[in-house]
Amino acid sequence: MVVGLAMMATGLGAGVFGSLLGLGGGILIVPLLTLGFGLPLRVAVGVSLVSVIVTSSASAAVFLQRHAANLRLGMTLELFTAAGAIGGGILAYALDERQLSALFALLLLYVAISMIRRREPGAAARAGAQGDAASAPPAPLPSTTDATRSARPDIGFAGYVARLSGPDYAIERFRLGIVGSIAAGVVSALFGVGGGIVKVPLMHLVMGVPLRVATATSNLMIGITASASAIIYLLRGGLDPFVSAPIAIGVFLGASAGSRIAHRVDVRVLRVLFTVVLLYTAFQMVQRAIQ
């Protein structure tokens, strides 16, 4: 019972932190389960993927209700993230624990550096960072409408891409977006994260999608990306239901609570603390890799 409660508390903490910082719980859950509970890395990744899907579904429901996500763009890109996720799921079983730990440490370092370099501490920046979790939903934004879509050319590939754009933004560098989406899928499956750390910057900085739309759309995409690889973990016996359940419940509750208290918390302090935790965890992962 104590272990179950400790796991739920772990999920709760990861959910609150993730929600406040615009990160998915996965980036915290995997190291907490491996370093704290001694689980094999692949099992921790499987557990994390379940939590990622639960929080993605919950937050995507809110984003869609507010018409903040671009469903068409999300569906088009998730075709490629799902393909990447299957590749990542296979790759995860081809690598040994030490290699995975080393790669995870690199991911943690990347996220920590992104946290340090972020300049704007406002809510939009927070929501736009990674967007994996059920973070505070953004205000409604214009999405691609039937009227504007019908006004665009519908000829060939360019016409299709034009129809994915919103009324106040146009999709750019779509082919690069496809390549990046495949990479996001691989990252998600390998490390049990939502992949928003790749998708949001990709959509916003490369493809010209407004930050809030990119965050909401990323949230939507995460579900199918994570489920494509989680199925492989399930069928390969790497999905532990006893651990997944308390963690997923904790993350769900934590993410919901986090989105409600977000406006009362000084995220700048939290970010510094989180960066220190990430760097320490990365160090632990490196140690695990070289042992």
Binding site: V50, I53, V54, S56, S57, A60, G223, I224, A226, S227, A230, I231, L234, L239, P241, S244, A245, A248
Partner: peptide
């Protein structure tokens, strides 16, 4: 867990 995994595909 099956419901969790099926939700994105159901969407």
């Amino acid at each position: 867990l099956l419901v969790v995994l099926a939700m994105p595909s159901a969407r």
